[in-house]
Design a protein around this nucleic acid. Structure first.
Lengths: 348, 348
DNA sequence: CTGAAAGCGCTAACAT
DNA sequence: ATGTTAGCGCTTTCAG
């Protein structure tokens, strides 16, 4: 399948060859090249370094890894790198790892427990120094408890039951503020498009919804809460269902933006105006939120920073202390919930 | 930074331990567990397998790699995993690699030659079995010629000067067909938003534009060709420039969708109707093309399949022969160039 | 049919 | 100040 370009080739030379060329032992080579050269005269050091350069010597990372147990590689587990939420996380992780010579092993799971376990084991088999698990956990999710993590460091992104440090936003507060906003523009019956009930992100965001509904003294109608799977189609379907069932609502809060976009689709098809008839707010503020028409209001936070923070924590970089484990969020109000309509009666 | 869950731990046992437990030598263990057991009595084989299972034995991939020179890892180099074009490629690569136990080391370069060389060397240092280079090459781009590829297999995605096999679409034909379409709906002065002149994708797509212009006997006005950098902002800027310069045009073909979206932004701001006054066609057909309003016509091909094909070629999977090195493309006509409205007067 | 031994390339005691 | 030695865990001749 492949041609061989006429270029210099690896193995660019071994420590042994460098040693021979410099007239020293491999130990000395190792010492000089690894900074453990306190007691080696400058002259010798120079000879070693010159030999190494001339040979284009590069330490064999496999041998180093076998010997020292450090691979300078981290694993990143996401449901789907094709999802805007996750590729920004991936970029953040990469931007921390790459400059310090770490590799990032990327895996997709589609939230399938079987594949989750498979990739974790694959990554562990490859002896990653650490693991970033993004995408949030599932309630009573036991399949990862029996994994032989060994001494592997793990950082979670999003809520999780596993007992590892995690980087995240305050999901409940985030959704609460979305509801606050909808109420502030006069909406009283707010359809809530959640994820799967077992997903922890979904549970936490739902808690935020319920808390806000209660705080505003609105009636809690169970028919207003509809579970989905964070896809555009599911958002569209659930709104169609609600419409078909005759559920009345003047606002929608969706637990992710794809869902919200689907909701807008369905409302448009049904001839409802957004935001006049129904105001819509999404969550995550992926770039697409600014592309769709009407532009989508959303809970905004930086997935990129989430990724950076997770990697900084994992790799203990110089700025790891800056890595906020709870990242800030704000509400970005756009056309889908612009306040052309003032509240009919000020909510208490 | 990390806690230690009370779980079983790696090293789950070495071949030596398995050997001891089964009462055989490590040689025999290796033979049995690697299929080289032609001459080993079933009974012995069973003992070894049982011992291995009981110990939860997993071969140390680092040791195997050191010994056999195979890491079961491939490198993937993209400009930016945050770009819709590339994350679908990444997914395709992952979907081929993951099921057969291969890891994918992901790196971003932002098209910076310095970083490109750095990541290639990093990946080579980590002894990847193969490398997928996505994002297209740059003319006279020498910085990768001196890389010590050694025996590493390489597959390119998109046009490239390096002498490795590549998977791609016929870029010239793709853009030609976009121009054909614009001409078919009555457009005669077609603004062409290219990438950087040194980018090979841009050169090939430009060749397609010029060829089509000529084939239709349209005048070639150099002022209609404007270079950008495949971002939304650049598309927007170039169209603003064209408008400010008084360049007349009734069609736009952009060499990527982000650019096309930016072009629509600028046209909208300038009060030009799309597609009535100016019809716009993009290239790549990323998912966003269907989200924007008006929905964007685009040259459509599967980045996902591009990724799959590249990985299949690299890894020589069973279906590698199915991996078309030239992938098909089609034109998806959407609102931004729908022919409901003919231009009022055929220009020039 | 099976094992002993060499060694992939490196690091780190342990000398000297 | 430097070298010798002993592995890391595995595969693979080469000998029985």
């Amino acid at each position: 399948v492949n041609r061989e370009p006429g270029t210099p080739r690896r193995p660019a030379g071994t420590a042994k060859q460098v040693a021979a060329r410099a007239g020293v032992s491999v130990t000395t080579v190792s010492r000089v090249l690894n900074g453990r050269a306190d007691a080696i005269p400058p002259e010798t050091q120079r000879r070693v370094i010159r030999a190494a350069t001339e040979l284009g010597y590069r330490p064999n990372s496999l041998a180093v890894a076998l010997r020292r147990g450090v691979t300078e590689t981290v694993g990143l587990i996401v449901p789907d790198i094709g999802d805007a939420y996750f590729h920004q996380i991936a970029r953040g992780v990469g931007d921390v790892a790459q400059p310090i010579g770490y590799g990032v092993l990327l895996t997709n799971t589609d939230r399938d427990p079987v594949r989750e376990e498979a990739v974790v084991n694959m990554l562990l088999d490859k002896h990653v120094d650490g693991l970033i698990f993004a995408g949030g956990g599932v309630e009573g999710d036991t399949h990862l408890n029996d994994v032989a993590w060994g001494s592997t460091k793990v950082v979670m992104v999003g809520p999780h039951e596993l007992d590892f440090p995690s980087v995240r936003v305050d999901d409940a507060a985030a959704v609460s503020s979305a509801v606050d906003h909808l109420v502030a523009i006069g909406r009283r019956r707010i359809l809530c498009l959640t994820g799967q009930p077992s997903w922890l992100v979904s549970q936490e965001r739902l808690a935020g919804y319920l808390r806000a509904i209660q705080a505003h003294g609105l009636e809690h109608d169970a028919a207003l809460v509809m579970p989905g799977d964070f896809t555009r189609t599911s958002g569209q379907k659930r709104v169609q269902d609600a419409l078909a069932l005759g559920v009345r609502f003047d606002g929608v809060v969706a637990f992710n933006d794809y869902c919200a976009i689907g909701a807008v689709d369905a409302l448009f098809d049904a001839g409802r105006r957004v935001p006049e008839d129904v105001a819509v707010v999404g969550c995550d503020d992926i770039p697409e939120a600014q592309l769709v028409r009407p532009t989508l209001s959303s809970i905004s936070f930086s997935q990129y920073e989430l990724g950076r923070a997770a990697a900084a924590l994992l790799l203990d970089t110089a700025d790891a202390h800056l890595a906020l484990q709870t990242q800030p969020h704000t509400l970005s109000v756009r056309q889908s919930s612009s306040l052309s309509v003032q509240p009919r009666e000020p909510p208490d």
